[in-house]
Simulated scan of single mutants.
Amino acid sequence: MAARLTTAGEGAIWFWARITRRDLVDSCRHSIGQVLLTCRVPRERVLLSHYGDWHSVLNKFPHIPEIPGESDEDYTVRTDRRYDDFVDRLKAAGAWGAGIEAWPADLRADVEQGWESIFDPGNYGRFESWQATMHTLCVEDVVEAVRIQR
């Protein structure tokens, strides 16, 4: 966020930026009593990312985009091979289990470079969920607030 946004702050506020109605309703079913905010925030204050693919970052693993037309089986074979190679490289460097800041520069650069596509909405499919994070939410950003009930 610090590198991509002009705003600054200590934390990150998380939002759905784009989600299907079905997935939002499902999410709300697990949030009874909470408040659902609808917000409109200028794009320059928001870091967009692909919700599902963000798990590559959270897990500190390479992001491996699907190839159009690729079968699930071929994708699994390709990702397993890439993950195994990555783990072998981490182990050979003595960095397996260490925080990413302790990885050799080449391994860190390799994995972080692969994450770049997660931040490009041009890579997201029509029905995929997007998430957004920002440093601060201003009262004027809130369009509606609804308590989630059964």
Rank of each mutant, 00 (worst) to 15 (best):
P42Q: 03
R22Q: 07
A145C: 12
F61N: 02
L24E: 07
A17L: 03
Q149Y: 09
F15L: 15
A2H: 14
W103R: 00
E44M: 05
T79Y: 10
E112W: 01
S49R: 00
R18M: 04
Y124V: 03
S117H: 03
H30N: 09
P42W: 01
E73T: 07
Q149G: 10
V46E: 01
L90D: 03
H135A: 09
W96Y: 14
R150M: 13
V87N: 08
G52P: 03
G99M: 04
Q149R: 14
F15D: 03
I64K: 05
G33H: 09
D74E: 12
D106W: 05
V142Q: 09
A93C: 12
G52F: 13
N59Y: 03
G99N: 05
L5S: 03
G94N: 08
K91D: 11
T76K: 15
I13L: 12
K60C: 09
G52A: 14
T76S: 14
D53R: 10
V139R: 15
L5M: 07
R82Y: 02
V46C: 05
I67M: 13
G69Q: 05
Y124S: 02
D26G: 10
G97P: 05
P68K: 12
M1L: 12
Q149I: 11
F119C: 03
I32N: 07
V87Q: 10
D141H: 02
W54P: 01
G52Q: 13
A98W: 11
S71T: 13
D84V: 14
Y124W: 14
E101G: 13
V46H: 00
W96C: 12
R81L: 08
L47R: 01
